[in-house]
């Protein structure tokens, strides 16, 4: 790829395949069954084994509220709650979540009533384009329940895994403050 190279090929990996272990004689299973509970409902999927939890939710369960912003754990848009903890659905293969309980943004409102964090995000205009918002909201719920929303400085630090390119950060902090107080009262 340097100046004097008259001919190059891509990708490097392919060139060096001889250094690599051979493909197995047979391809691994082309589909696997995965069971999880999504927003309280049991759900069984037949998936390509490589499917991430994020793609499983979006493309196979049909819950597109959870967003793909980088697919590499660098932005937080895909945040969901797994077994009570906020996690990144893009960095988990769906198989690894077999039998897990998963909550997505679609599972927050009940009987048309918004979750306090959702309402606070509206009240404080805590978004503009809205794309990072489901991830911000799921992360905020985690942040509050972990006890990491006591001070503004804590909220900022513990919400830093969720990038908002529109930069609604001060409004997100204000929203979490309101929701925290409301959830503590409840």
């Amino acid at each position: 790829m340097t100046a004097d190279a008259s001919s190059v090929s891509t990708p490097w990996m392919a060139l060096r395949d001889t250094d690599r272990p051979a493909e197995p004689a047979t391809r691994p299973d082309t589909v696997v069954a995965v069971d999880f509970i999504v927003n309280g409902k049991p759900c069984r999927l037949e998936l390509d084994p490589r499917t991430t939890l994020l793609d499983a939710l979006r493309d196979h369960v049909g819950l597109t509220g959870t967003k793909k912003g980088c697919d590499h754990g660098q932005c937080g848009a895909c945040t969901v709650i797994v077994n009570g903890r906020r996690t990144l659905s893009c960095l988990s293969f769906a198989q690894m979540n077999d039998r897990d309980e998963i909550t997505t943004v679609e599972g927050l409102a009940s009987d048309g009533r918004l979750h306090p964090v959702q309402q606070a995000f509206i009240d404080h205009d805590a978004f503009q384009c809205g794309y990072c918002t489901p991830g911000q909201i799921m992360s905020a719920i985690g942040c509050i329940s972990e006890g990491h929303a006591e001070t503004d400085a804590d909220i900022r630090e513990y919400m830093s895994g969720n990038i908002c390119r529109c930069a609604a950060y001060p409004n997100i902090v204000a929203a979490i403050r309101q929701a925290r107080d409301e959830m503590e009262r409840a």
């Binding site: 997505t104 918004l114 404080h124 809205g130």
Partner: peptide, 28 residues
């Protein structure tokens, strides 16, 4: 009501919440 919704001064409209706010917080 809060800092995100400043009171309008002269030649300013109302600080209403976004028309699509609910859709954006519910994933819809």
């Amino acid at each position: 009501m809060n800092e995100a919704a400043p009171l309008p001064k002269g030649n300013m409209g109302e600080p209403v919440a976004r028309i699509d706010a609910r859709l954006k917080v519910t994933g819809d």
